[in-house]
Design a protein around this nucleic acid. Structure first.
Lengths: 231, 231
DNA sequence: AGTCATTAAAAGTATGACCATTTGCTTCGG
DNA sequence: CCGAAGCAAATGGTCATACTTTTAATGACT
């Protein structure tokens, strides 16, 4: 997602360290120190710091240094930050947050999609639900994941709301994390897959209420499973 | 929200211009050109560009320049970008997007708040609802706005979900925009205010379902009013 | 016409100097 | 002894310039 020159290297090192709490709130970095530590020029350090600053991870003050801001200030919707946290120590907390967000957003998106989806999207959802059924039965978790993520992204897209649409990538990250960390049963539950078929059906027929209800069942189910696993 | 040195000046100029479409998708900027145009050094230009880049507004490529990315790539959850769009040409679209987001998120947040709010937050909500009633009757729109925004921020905070909590500032921006642009009746509707009292009551007594329902009525009402006005 | 080498344009990086601001300390006066 | 004024050092902020690397475009040679 983020591969850009030398500042990128600093980011890829500092960002996760801050996100994971390894570099604690209130810790102070100095430009000169970073220059030496990474053996790069001031220019590069400053650009990396600027990016951290624009995520509200740090604040830079003269005569003081670059201080790590309290977590409550962080721009928790920043996709890069989300990725770092998903990869790091507070995966569980991040997954729970995203789980709640999904419960709020995806049913609404499904309802809107039933009204706004174009023909292509409706076809696509049907096809994806079918694929999920088949790859699920076959136990092909990789393919299943791809289709699952694609399904949810398509629904979010079809909602016609740009902000919902942008959560597609985030949802994919959540789903991927789930399979990669073996939080999935070997064969996805037939019931969950059936709910996806219901969502596709409802969106195709333009039944907003049914789409919303079925999607709510999916995401609340996912959240419950998640809560069950994270103990 | 964002006032930082010279790069900040560039940002405050370029960002809104891009966000409003004044600088169109695919347009190409060059560092040297920006240096001259704003009479600043390369360092400053590069840092400003870095920030635009981290919002996915532009992409920088060697031998080509800094190109404005398609809107679909933009990080639409970035608070700075939201502010720019709210202030600029596509206010309406942005307000609609945020309205839908509120409809999705705030009822869920209210439901969670009924479970997770601490004593202080419950007291605060009750007090704010009372204030809204009084300032609403008095027609003091400024004070009403403050309490309204505070109310919603508190509910989002009390949900216990950091991502929801962070939408507080955004919701405030939406509400402020509404009053500032005279999309509010002179005296806020008594019914809307009553719904706020209901939310406070439900959260205080721990009734998640009632809190969710009342909040849903508030935000769907707001969205309908918005849609009615934006024609 | 197609392929490969050449060239030039633009971003990326480095360096060193200087500026501006903030904080802490010191000194002076009461 | 205390407080205020002012001084000094530390640190980020800005600048100018030169060098490096990537890559699109051009043109030559098959």
């Amino acid at each position: 997602m983020d591969i850009q020159g030398l500042p990128g290297r600093l980011l890829a090192d500092l960002g996760p360290a801050i996100a994971s709490g390894e570099i604690a709130e209130g810790a102070v970095l100095r430009i000169e120190e970073l220059e030496e530590r990474f053996d790069v020029s001031r220019t590069v350090v400053r650009e990396a710091v600027r990016m951290l600053e624009s995520m509200q991870l740090v604040a830079s003050r003269r005569r003081v240094g670059i201080t790590v801001r309290p977590r409550s200030d962080w721009d928790v919707f920043n996709p890069t930050l989300i990725a770092w946290r998903l990869a790091g120590a507070d995966r569980p907390a991040q997954l729970r947050s995203l789980g709640s967000l999904r419960v709020a957003v995806e049913p609404a998106a499904a309802g809107l999609a039933a009204v706004h989806a174009d023909d292509d999207q409706r076809r696509r959802l049907g096809a994806l639900a079918t694929e999920m059924t088949m790859t699920g039965r076959a136990g092909d978790l990789d393919a299943f994941l791809r289709h699952d993520a694609d399904f949810h992204a398509t629904v979010l897209q079809a909602s016609g709301n740009e902000m919902f649409a942008h959560l597609g990538a985030t949802v994919e990250a959540v789903l991927r994390g789930r399979t990669e960390h073996h939080l999935m049963p070997h064969h996805p539950e037939e019931y969950a897959v059936q709910l996806h078929r219901e969502v596709a059906e409802a969106i195709t027929t333009g039944d907003a209420t049914a789409a919303e209800r079925a999607m709510r069942a999916i995401v609340t189910g996912a959240l419950e499973e998640l809560d069950a696993v994270l103990d």
